[in-house]
Every structure is written in C-alpha cells, then in structure tokens.
Design a binder for these strands. Structure first.
Lengths: 218, 218
DNA sequence: TGATTTTTAGACTAACTCGCATAAAAATGT
DNA sequence: ACATTTTTATGCGAGTTAGTCTAAAAATCA
C-alpha cells in the first residue's frame, strides 16, 4: 500500500531542495573500506566522515549511527557480490570448476588492500565486537548461515547431478567448504599473501572433493 | 650474566617494600576474559582496571600499555593450554582419537562464557585490529603459524605410523585441520552452541581422515 | 524575484580515554 | 621507633568521541 505512490511520481523523492552532493553507494563503499582497514570499533565517525566526504550530520541523516552505517555497507557489499559469487557457484556445471571459480573470486576480495590483505568485510571486521553487541552478533550469525545455505544448495545439486554419490553427507561437505572460507578470511587478515591463499584454496578443494567421493565431470 | 644473581638470592626480587596485593597470573586471566567479552579496542584500561582489581598505574608498572597487557595475557593462555592440547594431540597413538580429543578440548575453550560462547582468545578478539596495528597483525600471523606447525607434526607422525599413506600431502591435511579450527572459532563467536560445534568438529574430522586415506588403528 | 525545501558546514556538550604525576599506604631493615 | 622502599590510590590534563543544534548554502516552485 505504501508502494502505490512511487509508481506515479518517482522523481519526487528528490525533487525540491538542495541536491545531495554525495553518492550513497560510493559513500557506503568508502565506509566499508574504512571499517576493513581500521576495524569496527577503531573506526570513528570522524574517520567515516572524512572517508565518505560527508559531514557527520549528513551521515546520520542518510544512514543512521555507526552500527547502521556498517550494516548498510555490508548489505550493499553482499548485494553487489552475490551476483558474481552465485554465478561462479551455480552457472558452472562442474562442481570442481565451480568451487575453483568461487574461491578464487573470494580470495581476490579478501586480498584487496594497498598495504596488506583486508580480509573479509564481515568475518575480519566485526568478530571482536560480536560477543558484546547482540546486533553485531546476530549479523555475524546470519552471515555464516547464508554461506552455509549456499554451499548446501550447491552440494545437493552436484549430488543430483551424479557428480557426488547419492549417500553424500551434504552438511558435512558444506561445513568443510565453509571452514575453508572462514580460514581464508583469517589467513588473509593475518597477512598471508594472495598466491599462498590460492594454493591453500586449491589443495583444500581437491581434498574435500576427494573425501566426498567426487567423480570428475568431463 | 644477568642471571647469576638470581641463583643465590631468589627472594630479593620482592623482599622490601609494600608487598603487591595482586596475583599477576590471575590478573592476566581476568584481563583476557575482559578482552574476549568486549573485543580488543572496546576494552579500555578502566575496564581492565576494574576486572583485575588493579589501579591503572599498577597495570602500567606490571605489564605496560594495553597492547602489552593483551600480548602477555595471550602468552599466558598459550602457555597454560599448550600442555593440555599437546597432550591431546601427541599422547594418543590413534590419529582419529587424538584429533577428537584435541578438538573437543578446543570447543570447550571456545564455548566458555556465561551468556554466549566467547570464542578463541586470539582469532575472535584481535581480528579486527590486525590490519591497522602491525604488532597485532604479527601476533595473529605467528599464532596461525604455531597451529599449522603442530598439525603438520602430528600428521607426519601418523604417516610414519602407517596410519596415513606414505604419499600423504601433509600440508594439505594440516591446512584442513587448521581451517576447522578457524571455523570453530568463527562459529563459536557467532553464537553457535557447544553441541553443534562438537557435531561439526566430529563430522569434519571424519571427512578429513577419509580424504587422507586413513586406516583405522585398532 | 521571493518563498520553500533539503543538504551541508561548523561548533558545541558531555562523556570517555590514555598516560602520568603526586601523595598516601604498607611492608622491611636497622 | 625511624628511615627506606615498593605498591597503591587519587586525580589531573590533553586529546577523542558520539550525537545534536544552529545557521548557511543550493537547489526548485510559484
């Protein structure tokens, strides 16, 4: 019912008044980069204000307080990267190739950073605060659940595809793939360079597929 | 040369003056608990002062600044837990049983906490700061390296034991075990309860051993 | 041009933080 | 008892931080 109005006058949302000088999407991207560089708590609103080139009151008006800024920045990151990652996982028929594409994409993201790898925008940033802040804790929990669900879907599809045995323990294999993802995030954050991360990813994928009894798909 | 004096007069170290009211070991334990609860940056010296029941100047005199307190607290944790963990890994001839004991011990540690699991004293606490603080980053890196080395030793021993094939890729198997450890830390920090962590650990160990081609040791 | 609306900029308060400086307290040695 | 030595307690000052309030700037509509 609330949506009815938007169909008719789409532009009214920003018709009058001084036009905003900032690009919300770019601002959230810059904010996330700052969070990844400094960590969640160590990032102040002044840092965010400088990184986004938005005045503090504008930040509040646009996104809310610091936690809301982080949550929206992550939501945008997920939205932007889910297409690429889902494509890697599900558009490739061969499970082995799909996993390789997926994890190479992941390593590329985790390896971003001028000085050293910045790691995962979720795992490497809010882990410290997850126990103290229930909202952050819930965000971390749901993020892990999202990844688990994706892996389970892909493994189930491979089993139906006869690439994996019918008796495959889907949860166990998915857990191992998730563990690889968590481990790559931790290692990247600790400073492990990209080639080493890729090596670890590839050998781990091979081991997991071997354990699952995968039959190569020509 | 500096050590010569200590042999003769051991008590001189705290002979005169007001005796200290605090127990350094207990204080570091309380400090680590506080770090695990709040996260590294969010923990202030006031929090540490209250938790350890030491005045701020006493904290400085005894351990140094906040980072030094954390590093010493972690060093003590490693020292205290390494005996138990090494015993689990190396005193048990069967690789499967050794890994089970090791990871059950680890899950017990990660599940500590009144309200929710506190996770790993290293991985779950300083991940956020590792990119900004080079000293913290180095600490994280060496901690990961320690774990890797332990797993490699144990896998090599099992291979020499004929529990694993001679051609076992030691690094690959060790990487997967480390990944399981990293993953359990992340999941615990996200709030996953202990039984679920134990289930994940057991099924993952089984899968890894299967991939490595382990032969059961009766 | 003038009124309206929205964003931006600067400043301000109250609370918190670190690190230290100063003084009191509690033990020992003579 | 008195001087010495070490630890503890209090509190201060410079710097940060979150969040808000007020006023100026920049656009549209009439």
């Amino acid at each position: 019912m609330k949506l009815l109005r938007y169909g008719t006058k789409m532009k009214d949302k920003s018709a009058r008044g001084r036009p905003r000088q900032y690009d919300a999407k770019a601002a959230l991207g810059a904010a996330l980069l700052e969070f990844r560089r400094r960590g969640y708590t160590a990032t102040s609103l002044d840092h965010l204000s400088e990184a986004t080139k938005m005045a503090r009151p504008s930040l509040y008006a646009a996104f809310g307080d610091k936690r809301a800024i982080y949550l929206r920045a992550v939501a945008q990151y997920v939205e932007d990267s889910v297409e690429c990652r889902d494509s890697a996982l599900f558009d490739e028929p061969s499970l082995a190739k799909a996993l390789d594409r997926y994890f190479m994409t992941l390593v590329a993201i985790f390896s971003e950073g001028d000085d050293r790898p910045l790691g995962c925008p979720v795992l490497s940033v809010i882990t410290g605060e997850a126990a103290a802040d229930p909202v952050i804790g819930a965000e971390l929990f749901t993020a892990l659940g999202r990844t688990d669900a994706r892996f389970r879907e892909r493994i189930a599809a491979a089993r139906d595809d006869t690439q994996l045995p019918p008796a495959t323990d889907i949860d166990a294999v998915a857990d191992m793939l998730a563990a690889l993802q968590h481990s790559l995030a931790a290692r990247a954050r600790a400073g492990t360079a990209r080639p080493e991360l890729e090596r670890i990813a590839r050998s781990s994928i091979a081991l997991i597929l071997k354990a699952a009894g995968a039959t190569a798909l020509s």
